[in-house]
Amino acid sequence: MSADAPQRSAALTATTLLGPATFVAALGVIGPMLYLLRYSFNQYDPRELMIETFTLKNYQAFFTNSYFLDAYLTTLRVGLFATAVCLVFGFPLAYVLARSTSRYKNLMIIAVVVPLFVGNAVRAAGWMSFLGSRGLLSVTLMNLGITSGPTDFMYSEGTVILGIIAVNLPYMVLSLQSVLEGINRNLEEAAYSMGARPLTMFRRILLPLALPGVAAGAILTFILAMNAYATPVLLGGPSFRMMAPLVYGQFQLNNWPAAAAIAFILMLTTLLLTMVVSAITRQKFRVT
């Protein structure tokens, strides 16, 4: 009896510790989500706003309306592209950080995170002063005689992607760095000594071993990119459309059923792609 007393008390402790968080999560996240799910099957009415019913009209409307579909495809494109770029740029950076023996390593890691200290509005102002028609880039190009008049680089898909990458890159770098740090450098050297060139070593040894970090980083940045709100609004301008602002737009029009449906489509798409990535990773990384 006394033998399992510690176990029972451990279980009790776990319950005590996890209880409040679980409760808050259930109340604060799952509850409203179920509510939203229910809303997405209701019907919008200009006068009564929402009529309780069960219809798939909101989902149907989304996939048959080119305005919505456009935003959907743009979001996917931006999300995938930004994630891919973060991965390509983040890997070398994370690698250098992970392998650094410099005593300034901690400072370098902080330098990677520092951009996140800046709020979205301030960051957008920064991009404007760089990319706007009177911004640094435009003026420099004019002064160099490459362009004859001012060029506005703001308010395009490219600008939004750039903005999202700037926000997401630190997340990617940190995810990769923590995994790369755990990979013994001797493994790389063993591969080299057996005649592997750097690219072969990367493909056959480093990448497979870093895959959990790649997956974590990719999933994290992809979720962030798909759900970006401030960046597309501030850097994309009024005519640029992505899903998160769209959801908010529908809420503002008081069309809760449509907003809920769009929100769920966004969530399910993100979830699905995330699951595909984890499944692939797990399969590739299957050891026994």
Binding site: N184, N186, E189, A190, S193, G195, R197, P198
Partner: peptide, 15 residues
């Protein structure tokens, strides 16, 4: 990778 040396480490370093 252009030399021909077989390396054995203290940490084994098996993949």
């Amino acid at each position: 990778w252009k030399r021909s040396t077989g390396l054995v480490f203290q940490s084994y370093a098996l993949f």
